[in-house]
C-alpha cells in the first residue's frame, strides 16, 4: 500500500469521523463551544412564546378578556406585535399591566396560559392570583436546551 493511499484513507477517515461525531459535542453533551457544528435547524423559533387567555376576576366571577378589543384593536392582525405574539414572562406581564390599566383598580387579572420551553408547554403564572400587583422573585422555568 503506497503512502499516497494511506494518506487518502487517513484523511477520509478523519473527515468522516468529524462529520459523523462532531455535532454530538454540543447536541448531546451540551458543550458551549462554537468550534463544533450542530444540525438542530428550527429548534429555537417560538421558544418562550406564551399562549392562553387573560381572565378578569371580580369576586367569585371569572370573565375571559378579549385583549385586542379592550386595548382598542378591532382587527388582531393590525394590533402591535407585543400584543399579538406574547413572549416570556415580561411579555405576558406587559399585556396584563395594560389590561389592568384599562379595567381600573377593582379587578384582578389572571393568566390561564402556558409558555413554550425546551421541555414543552409549561404553566405560566398559574400560582399568581393577580398580575396587577407587583410580583416577588420567582423561579424561572427552563427555556433553552442544556440550561
Amino acid at each position: 500500500m503506497g503512502v499516497r493511499r494511506i494518506l487518502r484513507i487517513a484523511t477520509m477517515a478523519l473527515i468522516a469521523a468529524w462529520i459523523v461525531a462532531a455535532p454530538a459535542w454540543r447536541q448531546l453533551h451540551g458543550a458551549r463551544t462554537r468550534w463544533m457544528p450542530t444540525w438542530d435547524m428550527y429548534a429555537e423559533p417560538g421558544l418562550e412564546i406564551v399562549r392562553g387567555r387573560f381572565l378578569a376576576v371580580r369576586g367569585d366571577h371569572l370573565e375571559e378578556l378579549d385583549r385586542y378589543a379592550l386595548l382598542g384593536h378591532r382587527e388582531p392582525r393590525a394590533a402591535p406585535r407585543w400584543l399579538r405574539t406574547i413572549r416570556g414572562e415580561a411579555g405576558a406581564l406587559r399585556v396584563a399591566r395594560a389590561l389592568c390599566e384599562r379595567l381600573g383598580g377593582d379587578v384582578a387579572i389572571r393568566l390561564d396560559g402556558q409558555i413554550a420551553t425546551w421541555d414543552g408547554w409549561q404553566p405560566l403564572f398559574a400560582d399568581v392570583d393577580d398580575l396587577c400587583r407587583p410580583l416577588g422573585p420567582r423561579p424561572i422555568t427552563r427555556r433553552r436546551r442544556h440550561e
Partner: peptide, 24 residues
C-alpha cells in the same frame, strides 16, 4: 442529527411545531 435533535419531549409532544407555527 436533525432527527436526534427532535427526540425531545418538546418536539414529540407536537409543542415545537405548534410554537414554530405560532412564531411565524
Amino acid at each position: 442529527w436533525s432527527a436526534i435533535d427532535k427526540l425531545s419531549p418538546d418536539y414529540l409532544s407536537g409543542a415545537r411545531l405548534e410554537r414554530i407555527a405560532m412564531d411565524f
